[in-house]
């Protein structure tokens, strides 16, 4: 009994000394500001800043000479304003952004022509064929974006089978943008109202219209009506530059296929997704 107590105590003592010596000998001197910044960061480790986790972002902040290109999308400007004084730098106010789905191919707009059966992943479908509709550019509806969102900000609408971005949750980390095999999701400025082309089809108008009734056909009417030159047409697809858009909505009425959407969060009068109840595909 006594011997075992003594032996155990000795083992414990030796291990403790060993651990102490090792931790001293291999101690790495680190900039204390890294810990300080990390404690301010939200700790979501989402990678939305472009770095591998919050710790890595903190290290990059300490290394950087200016905070202009660094932004924690989760904490936003508030967090950046707290980080700036630690480093003795200025944080530039950056416009908040939100993920925008540039496709409105619900079942009634874009008829289903086949039935997909296989792993539920947009990447799998995209590698296989055009998807359940004939559109080569539209949403595949298997929800890779929703799965990629660490915050639960994207849900797949069971009726339209399109992703819905919850504006109260989305912090524009960009995970969904990377996850979408068809590059449908884009990060845009949170304007009031938000005007964008809800289509990604780069085929000629005649084909685009054939596969989807609300496709952008690249007619260019919107570009002509824009007072600020924010709209360009490339590859038969109109694109509204959010840094130039004045949200005047001059382009909206003229669009022959209603491909341009206006989302007004504060007024809750969204002329867009789920305008009409559509049948389940």
């Amino acid at each position: 009994m006594v011997t075992s107590i003594i032996i155990l105590s000795i083992i414990g003592l030796v291990s403790a000394t060993l651990l102490y010596v090792i931790s001293r000998k291999f101690h790495v001197e680190e900039d204390s500001r890294i810990d300080e910044i990390e404690s301010i960061l939200p700790g979501a480790n989402c990678g939305g800043c472009g770095f591998a986790g919050c710790r890595n972002f903190a290290e990059q902040c300490v290394k950087a000479t200016s905070l202009d290109n660094l932004l924690c999308p989760v904490g936003g400007n508030a967090v950046m304003q707290k980080i700036a004084p630690i480093l003795g730098m200025q944080a530039v106010e950056q416009a908040p952004r939100i993920a925008v789905v540039r496709c409105n191919g619900s079942c009634e707009n874009r008829p289903q022509t086949s039935h997909y059966e296989g792993a539920h992943s947009c990447a799998v479908v995209a590698a296989l064929y055009s998807g359940e509709s004939n559109c080569n550019y539209g949403c595949l509806g298997e929800g890779d974006c929703a799965a990629a969102c660490d915050f639960g900000g994207i849900t797949m609408d069971p009726i339209t089978r399109l992703p819905y971005v919850d504006p109260n949750i989305c912090i524009a980390c960009g995970s969904c943008v990377k996850a979408c095999p068809r590059n449908i999701i884009e990060l845009r400025k949170r304007q009031e109202p938000r005007v964008f082309v809800a289509c990604n089809n780069r085929d000629k108008g005649i084909i685009a219209r054939k596969v989807c009734s609300i496709a952008c056909i690249g007619c260019g009417k919107c570009a002509k009506s824009c007072p600020n030159g924010a709209i360009t047409i490339t590859d038969n697809l109109a694109y509204i530059d959010d840094s130039l858009c004045l949200s005047c909505q001059a382009c909206v009425a003229g669009c022959p296929t209603h491909a341009i959407h206006v989302v007004n969060e504060s007024a809750k009068e969204n002329i867009s997704i789920n305008e009409k109840e559509s049948a389940i595909c």
Binding site: T113, Y129, S130, I207
Partner: peptide
């Protein structure tokens, strides 16, 4: 012209 192939791709 562009037409759809067997997998619906133009």
């Amino acid at each position: 012209d562009k037409t759809a192939n067997a997998f619906g791709l133009y």
